[in-house]
Nucleic acid binder design. Structure first.
Length: 306
RNA sequence: GCAAGGGUGGUCGAGUGGUUAAUGGCACCGGGCUGUAAACCCGGCAGACGAAAGUCUUACAUAGGUUCAAAUCCUAUCCCUUGCA
């Protein structure tokens, strides 16, 4: 049984470096598992590996979705599965690298079957939310699917809307349908996960520095160009860290200085949530330290006996 | 130097005699999340003990004082801001 590897961890923890190092060592190919790096056109603040950083290792699912598309975890799970088959057919080892825990989970524990998002319906629900408040949507859900409502926070409109969408699109209650998961793919059990866990204070420092660098490298210009080309502020792509705050700056809602500071904070908060996720949601071998450190890489090799 | 205003918890900022360990925002910490996940949401946050109810200790520049009771009133000292010199 051949293993498939996955490298997870908070943003800026060095996943790219250790992933590439592992790939070079065992003849692997990397599948991106990051919900933002999949988009074409947004570059500077996404921490996509550069050509040098890739060191000749094939990378998949990077830069392959147009930035105005609403790509979802289910889409990714499907695409990633296809890539895994493809890479294994070549007798190479798939290595999943990225910080979007939810994507990885969608791959290993497929969602229940449901129709794709009905954008019109979502728009309608969003309008109701904006006009009458999030709690109003929740009240509807309480009537239509009380079990789902009980599981969710009244203000968590993303989940409340999803439950309503399922109810209205399929006629069935989410609470009733959700347990009917598809069977996990054959390879799910073969995925060995390693979670990077660098010291938090150093990670935060790195995040702050990174944000500064992104702005220095012309993040504002990049966003300007994207918007001029017609990309709308409410796309997933422009909702990414950094991009979101620059959009606010360009709309005149905050200063450049505050856009930079807020970006740092967004990313720090995000890293913390990721750590929380990987601590609980993933069965992973923890790797203390940054993935960019030779020592951490050595530890990984020792564990894998390679 | 005189006049006026002000110094509150990591930070910003409410509170002007009594359920006040002190509203709220942010930081920070913990958590949830089955097709938006770099999204969305929830909880904790003076310290000590406790599973909890709770108990104790220390807190609103500093030092005194008034009062049954003070972050809130009075006095002195230190510091800050503005106006006049």
């Amino acid at each position: 049984m051949n293993s498939i590897y996955s490298i997870v961890g908070p943003t800026a923890s060095g996943k790219t470096e250790i992933g590439v190092a592992l790939a070079l060592r065992i003849g692997g190919e990397i599948i991106n598992c990051d919900s933002v790096q999949i988009y074409r056109g947004i570059e500077i603040a996404t921490a996509k590996p550069s050509v040098e950083e890739m060191r000749g290792v094939p990378h998949h699912l990077i830069d392959y979705v147009a930035p105005d598309v609403k790509y979802t975890a289910a889409d990714w799970a499907k695409d990633a599965a296809a890539k895994i088959y493809e890479i294994e057919a070549r007798e190479n080892v798939p290595i999943l690298v990225g910080g979007t825990g939810f994507y990885l989970r969608a791959l290993r524990e497929p969602f229940f079957e449901s129709p794709p998002t009905d954008e019109k319906l979502r728009e309608k629900l969003t309008k109701i939310k904006n006009r009458r408040g999030v709690e109003y949507l929740y009240k509807i859900l309480q009537k239509v699917d009380p079990d789902s409502a009980a599981k969710n926070q009244p203000r968590d409109y993303v989940r409340v809307m999803r439950a309503l969408e399922v109810r209205f699109q399929t006629g069935k209650r989410l609470s009733e349908v959700q347990p009917n998961r598809e069977k996990p793919p054959e390879f799910a059990e073969r995925i060995r996960t390693f979670a990077l866990n660098p010291p938090r204070d150093l990670l935060y420092e790195k995040i702050n520095e990174r944000a500064e660098i992104h702005f220095e490298k012309g993040l504002v210009e990049e966003v300007k160009t994207l918007r001029e080309s017609g990309l709308s502020d409410d796309t997933n792509a422009l909702g990414a860290h950094g991009y979101r705050r620059v959009c606010e700056y360009l709309r005149g809602e905050r200063s450049l200085e505050s856009a930079i500071e807020q970006t740092k904070q967004d990313v720090r908060n995000y890293a913390k949530r990721q750590m929380s996720w990987f601590r609980h949601k993933e069965i992973a071998t923890r790797l203390e330290g940054f993935g960019s450190d030779a020592e951490t890489q050595k530890k990984l090799y020792e564990i894998l006996k390679i």
